[in-house]
């Protein structure tokens, strides 16, 4: 059977308790300008490149803050059927999302929340800015790496790669797709608290300083990402994580 057409991440939604504060933070740190829509509890952030980002103000304290990637799906119903077949959970069924189209929310068997967006027409946000600190990577907990590779193959049509000799990590390369994906398996998965998106930055040190000035915080140390560069985790004022990724000499 030929592989299915892969689903790509088109939108990254960041839940916040204070939309105005979050807008100021993401503009100050990443240069993403916000455009409020609807009743003012939602704002799109112009990253200049797919995926676009969005802020969603959640008043209900029962709903945690967090970061959720949206996969662009031609038919949400088909994806939800696959999610159910391979052990995932449908957290929110397919619903209308105004002029955007339809959405649904799911969770994989390892607790990673991945939402779906079925746009009414071809997904082509009108970026006003040049790409600034684009979101390029998603890292997911996958204690059972084999099962996770099978899950995302079925649900999203993703194929994963490995580095010979490295048995705890499978990845979907960033070079050929808008957003690369890493599955962290085995015992190392336990070190990963939550699904983490990463934005590419030119200068990790400089952006890190902006995080502090804008009211966020940073993971203690930067780490060297295999082959590619340096990473550090930035936490916004709500505690949402956004990885900072600085290219190494070889690039991503």
């Amino acid at each position: 059977m030929p592989a299915q057409e892969a689903l790509e991440i088109g939108l990254v939604e960041i839940r916040t308790r204070d939309l105005q504060r979050a807008r100021e933070y993401y503009e100050a740190v990443f240069g993403w300008t916000g455009t409020p829509v609807g009743d003012g509890s939602y704002a799109f952030l112009d990253t200049g490149k797919q995926p676009i980002a969005a802020l969603y103000e959640i008043g209900n304290r029962d709903i945690p803050v967090g970061v959720t990637p949206y996969l662009l799906a031609p038919e949400i119903d088909d994806v939800l059927a696959d999610v159910a077949k391979v052990g995932g959970e449908v957290l929110a069924p397919k619903s209308e999302w105004g002029a955007m189209g339809f959405w649904a929310n799911t969770q994989d068997p390892w607790g990673n929340g991945v939402a779906l967006l079925q746009p009414r027409s071809a997904w082509s946000p009108s970026y006003r800015a040049a790409p600034r600190h684009p979101i390029v990577w998603a890292e997911l907990r996958a204690p059972d790496l084999q099962a996770a590779v099978r899950y995302y193959k079925r649900v999203a049509g993703w194929s994963f790669q490995v580095k010979p000799g490295v048995d705890h990590f499978a990845f979907r390369s960033a070079g050929s797709h808008p957003v690369g994906v890493g599955l962290v398996g085995g015992a190392r998965a336990d070190l990963l608290g939550q699904l983490t998106m990463y934005a590419r930055v030119d200068d990790l040190t400089e952006v890190g300083e902006r995080v502090g000035r804008a009211g966020g915080s940073l993971s203690q140390h930067s780490k060297t990402a295999p082959e590619t560069g340096r990473i550090r985790i930035a936490y916004d004022p709500d505690g949402n994580a956004m990885g900072l990724f600085e290219d190494g000499p070889r690039g991503a």
């Binding site: 030929p2 994963f160 490995v162 580095k163 990845f171």
Partner: peptide
């Protein structure tokens, strides 16, 4: 093609040349 079985053999020369070696899961 999502092959049922995929195999590869290589001496791994690219790693000594500073290039990455990545293979399908």
């Amino acid at each position: 093609f999502d092959f049922d079985r995929v195999a590869a053999a290589d001496i791994g020369v690219v790693e000594s040349l500073g290039l990455p070696l990545r293979l399908p899961f």
